[in-house]
Structure formats: structure tokens, C-alpha cells
Design a binder for these strands. Structure first.
Lengths: 114, 114
DNA sequence: CTTAACTGCAACCGGTCGGTTGCGCGACCT
DNA sequence: AGGTCGCGCAACCGACCGGTTGCAGTTAAG
């Protein structure tokens, strides 16, 4: 069912690796939708540059596209974010388990009276 | 205070954007420490390539370095992972708040009779 | 002491990335 | 109708990235 999770987490992390893209995601999380031209007016770059970033976010399925007349509106689609968070949570959990096991083994050892 | 969180989250996401680096982090979460040569023996690349990746992880402060004799051991340092997870959680939370506000406004409107 | 193991540093190479410019097309407005 | 607004596509450019090779330095082992 959701076997291709690993393929997806890669594109998500790659998408989030760019500060501009993260800023767009932050904006999208607060507001509703955004167009390439509208964003470019607020950012120090060209409309096409923004369009490329939005295309990358779309590639990671982090945004959904909705064309209205001659405007293309982008909306946040936060599900892939959860997958990235899930990866981090998995790694952290394994680390914590490891620490816990170490702590228990030390405790056992310490309780053994020489 | 932890003001420089924004500067740090960038290097963390950049570090996690590479699949090899994520794989190393996963390994490090399970095991204890790792050396560049030891990792290179398990990966389809040169020792120096692995060393570069480890250096990148070190730049993101995702690993701590400990030199023992002629070997350099790398250990996971999961704190920056929490910062990345925190960023995602923040974005998701704002999105959820937005949805909740929309839901409430719709409900209010719908509950108003006539 | 000589040799082998493990490392770091620097140079180099092809490919991708972020950004720009330029063009053409559809949609909206008088 | 004609003009212009927003968009997508393609080409181009400099910079960075992932990877390699080669070399020099330090530590362990013979």
C-alpha cells in the first residue's frame, strides 16, 4: 500500500533543503494559496525562479496545483511533511532505545555487588 | 536561549537531503560509532567520499568526532534532528490551526439559523 | 627501524542546481 | 479587434556537489 515511502522521503528532504522553498512552505502554511508572480513580488528573485521552486515542491507533492483562468494557484499539501517527520521520529526512537538499553545494562551491572 | 535555531535548521535539512547521509544516520542511530574506512567497506564508494559525507554531518553537528589512536570514530548527536522535526511540527501546527479556524467559521455560519 | 594501516588535504571532473533572459501562448480587459 | 497580464518552456551561465585520484602525515605493528 504505501511501499514507496522511501522514494518519497528523499524528494521531500531535497525540497526542504532550500531556504527559499522552506520559506514558501511556511508562507503556505499560514495563508491559503499563492501564485508564482505573487510570490516573486515578495522575494528577491524572478518569477521563473519562483516557478522552478514551486515546481520542485510540486515534484515532492508538497503543494497541489489549481489553475484559475490565467493564474496558477499553489496550496500546501502537508502529508509528505509527516513522512519526513516520521523518518526523523524513527531514527530518534532507535537512538533512544539504544540509550535505554545501555542504561539498563549499566544499572544491572552497577547493582551487582562486586 | 536558542536563538540561532534558524541558521542551524538549514544545514540539517541540507545534510539530510542526501540518501547516503541519511543511511549513515540510520546506521549511527542503531549502532554505536563508525569510522570512515569501516563505512566505506559497506558502501559502494571510496573512503574519501564517505569522509566528505561525515564531514558534512559534522558541519550540521549531527555527529560528534572522537579520535582514538589512528582511527576517527563518529557518533550520532541527535539534537539537531529535533530542531528539524520542530520546524516541521511548527509548519504543520500552523496549517492545522488554519484548518481549525476555517472549520469553526463554517460551523458558526452554519449554526446561525435563517 | 621499517612497514602497514588510517587518516586529512588538495586538485580535478562531470553533473546538477539556483538563477537569469528570451520567447510564445492562452486568458482577460477595454 | 488590440493590448497586456500571467504563465510555461528552453537555453544559457556560474557555482556547488558528489565522487575520484594522488599524496603526505601520524600511529600501530613486524
Amino acid at each position: 500500500m504505501r511501499a514507496p515511502a522511501h522514494r518519497q522521503v528523499d524528494s521531500v528532504f531535497v525540497a526542504l533543503a532550500d531556504p527559499t522553498r522552506r520559506r514558501v512552505v511556511e508562507t503556505l502554511a499560514r495563508g491559503g494559496t499563492v501564485t508564482a508572480s505573487g510570490l516573486a513580488a515578495q522575494l528577491p528573485m524572478t518569477r521563473q525562479a519562483v516557478a522552478k521552486h514551486l515546481s520542485a515542491l510540486r515534484g515532492a507533492e508538497l503543494v497541489s496545483v489549481m489553475r484559475i483562468g490565467r493564474e496558477t494557484h499553489y496550496k500546501l499539501r502537508p502529508q509528505p511533511l509527516d513522512e519526513a517527520a516520521h523518518w526523523i521520529q524513527m531514527v530518534s526512537a532507535e537512538w533512544d532505545d539504544r540509550l535505554e538499553a545501555l542504561r539498563r545494562s549499566l544499572e544491572k551491572r552497577g547493582s551487582r555487588p562486586r
